[in-house]
Design a protein around this nucleic acid. Structure first.
Lengths: 157, 157
DNA sequence: TCATAACTGAAAACGGTTTCCATTTTCTCT
DNA sequence: AGAGAAAATGGAAACCGTTTTCAGTTATGA
């Protein structure tokens, strides 16, 4: 069977990811929240133990490339908070999340559903505009920070 | 009367803006849409005619500082589309806008009202989270691009 | 008018991301 | 298994928007 690598990826999807991308996906799955590329690189190095092993974890370039690939495949979502740095998280294939980001403890809560899905037809009606993508992140204070009961200072984005 | 410059700014608000900030605000008011800092710098230079005058238009540093000041005062809004570059636009003091950004003609339409205002109490109820800020931009295709009737190619962001 | 605070701009630093390019790994077909 | 092609990789450099630094200028208030 003649089939380019690109083609088999489209068929096999996440089965035949390059080694680097697999490693990135795994690291991202283990992570407690969203990670920047640099965070990822750091965590992946730590998860190896000997110095030799550490040198085996993918370089930043590969991490960026893998994130791009995984994002294209819909396995990972890039999240932008309006600052320079993008964060990444694993998603249900093809789905996306929005977040409540606590400005105090920096933790983020995933919204259980996309608030905009229903609004997009209203927009089509009112503005004649077909929405295909959107950016939505909410910032504020989470319950435990508001009540002062939050004892966990982990900066867990 | 003893009053620091900072204090009088808080009182006089937009009256006694520094020269650079005034110029930036004016340029932003004249602009057809959102402008990046670099766009602004470019346009401000063009709006002066002789070489000598051009050298009088504020440098990039001052532009960034002015934008920061104007944003703090609520006269200008920084808009993030999830890419590197921030764009700025004049707003009704203290208000904010969201946009429908056409991926084809790059023009953006201001939403007539904030779609989230009503949702924020739902969020408080469902998640115990108090939203104080949010990021919302919508991307897709505007009516004239969809119908193929858009003859205007101006990249007017 | 003098002293101080505010403002400005050029250049350098910065931080996240992308590109370049030479090397290594993996795949595919015999 | 082996040869040749395609894909993947990593370090260094480039990039790009933004911020900082610092020295000089301008405005303000007593």
């Amino acid at each position: 069977m003649i089939r380019t690598k690109l083609e088999s990826r489209l068929v096999g999807a996440r089965k035949n990811l390059p080694k680097g991308a697999k490693a990135v996906l795994e690291a991202l799955q283990k992570a407690p929240g969203m990670l920047s590329a640099r965070d990822l690189s750091f965590r992946m190095k730590l998860s190896h133990h000997t110095k030799e092993e550490q040198s085996k974890s993918p370089g930043l370039t590969t991490i960026y490339r893998s994130l791009e690939l995984l994002t294209r495949q819909g396995l990972v979502q890039a999240v932008s908070f309006g600052d320079q740095e993008k964060r990444y998280e694993v998603v249900e294939p093809g789905c996306h999340n929005h977040h409540l980001v606590c400005k105090s403890c920096k933790k983020s809560i995933k919204l259980r559903e996309c608030l905009l899905a229903s609004l997009e037809e209203t927009i089509k009606r009112d503005y004649g505009f077909s929405v295909s993508e959107h950016l939505l992140e909410l910032f504020g204070t989470c319950q435990s920070c508001e009540l002062g009961t939050n004892l966990d200072n982990t900066d867990r984005r």
